[in-house]
């Protein structure tokens, strides 16, 4: 066991992935000497060489499109997209090519790769640096979408994503990069697509992922002082969604609130609300509520705290759910 930041845990996980499989290549803008703008790949080019940690020309579609070809040749590319808002030039290659290839070839061929995207806000950034694009990818058949919230998950999930036989969108909560936590090296991790109960509770379930896991845990701690017992579930996998863990939780608490930074309409919250109502309609005491970003382009940073879910907005939703 060791304590490290989420950023360092990703670095350690990528190092393990490079060690484990000579076909693994890291590929992206500024990931070599610089180690990426967030230093996630720091030192890896020095240790594994310029042929395995590759600085790409500045073109996201080109990076993902050539990764498709590398994967077809038998390599396992791990792409770094520099910021969430920069992934859209690669959208066609991801959605029309990478996601569809296994289907297009009738299951004969696949192009497994990992597309790492630092995502989410709360860092005081300028436009295009704070977005939450997960719903686009979770909506696309043929992609698996995961996100980590702790250093331990970061360390293990990146290795599991690299080993996945299907393409994985790997979302990294950039505002949690410098949060420290314990990484357990010698215990078998959860399966990649399984959710995790972060905190047990009985009155309502907060369903969340990525950067909002910490926020929900804080809200649950405050609620406890007020005599309310909130369960917090970290989805970890946004596609597929682990409905077994979710329904096991909500079957007990009978109330659910989904929390994410992404905007509300057709976000993960909408899908989870629909599924819970299909599965647990007669059991639930209140409708599934959502605490999300508002339906607007990501705002200027001076007001982003009014856009992003925070402890108060989460607890306000808990009040409404319990009062129903």
């Amino acid at each position: 066991m060791s304590t490290m930041t989420l950023a360092k845990a990703l670095n350690a996980g990528l190092r393990r992935a490079l060690d484990a499989n000579p076909k693994v290549l890291l590929y992206g803008e500024d990931i070599g000497k610089l180690g990426g703008v967030f230093r996630i790949t720091e030192g890896l080019q020095k240790d594994f060489g310029e042929d395995r940690v590759i600085d790409a020309p500045l073109a996201e579609s080109g990076i993902v499109g050539t990764s498709f070809g590398l994967a077809l040749r038998g390599y396992r590319p791990v792409v770094e997209i520099q910021f969430d808002g920069f992934v859209y030039p690669a959208f066609n290659q991801i959605v029309s090519q990478v996601a569809k290839f296994h289907n297009r070839t009738e299951g004969r061929h696949a192009v497994p790769m990992v597309i790492r995207i630092p995502y989410g806000g709360g860092i005081g950034a300028i436009e295009h640096h704070s977005e939450s694009p997960e719903a686009y990818f979770a909506h696309t058949a043929g992609l698996k979408v995961v996100t980590c919230s702790t250093p331990n998950d970061a360390y293990w999930m990146i290795q599991q994503a690299v080993a996945s036989e299907d393409p994985v969108i790997f979302l990294e909560p950039k505002r949690r990069y410098h949060d420290k936590g314990e990484v357990v090296h010698d215990t078998k991790p959860l399966p990649l697509h399984q959710a995790r109960v972060v905190r047990g509770g009985t009155d309502a379930t907060l369903i969340t992922y990525g950067p909002m896991v910490k926020m929900c845990a804080e809200a649950a701690a405050i609620a406890e002082d007020e005599g309310r017992s909130l369960e917090v579930v970290d989805l970890r996998s946004l596609s597929p969604i682990d409905m077994v863990t979710l329904t096991n939780s909500v079957r007990r608490t009978r109330r659910a609130i989904v929390v994410h930074e992404d905007v509300q309409t057709l976000g993960l919250g909408a899908e989870i609300a629909a599924r819970l109502s299909e599965d647990l309609f007669y059991l639930m005491e209140s409708p599934v509520l959502r605490v999300t970003g508002h339906d607007m382009p990501y705002p200027n940073s001076r007001v982003e705290n009014d856009f992003l879910p925070d402890v108060d907005r989460i607890l306000d939703a808990v009040d409404r759910s319990l009062a129903y």
């Binding site: 290549l25 050539t66 070809g69 590398l70 077809l72």
Partner: peptide, 14 residues
Amino acid sequence: TLHATGYAMGIQHD
């Protein structure tokens, strides 16, 4: 054309 270029990069890497 990008798939082709990536595949060619793989040939080179091999």
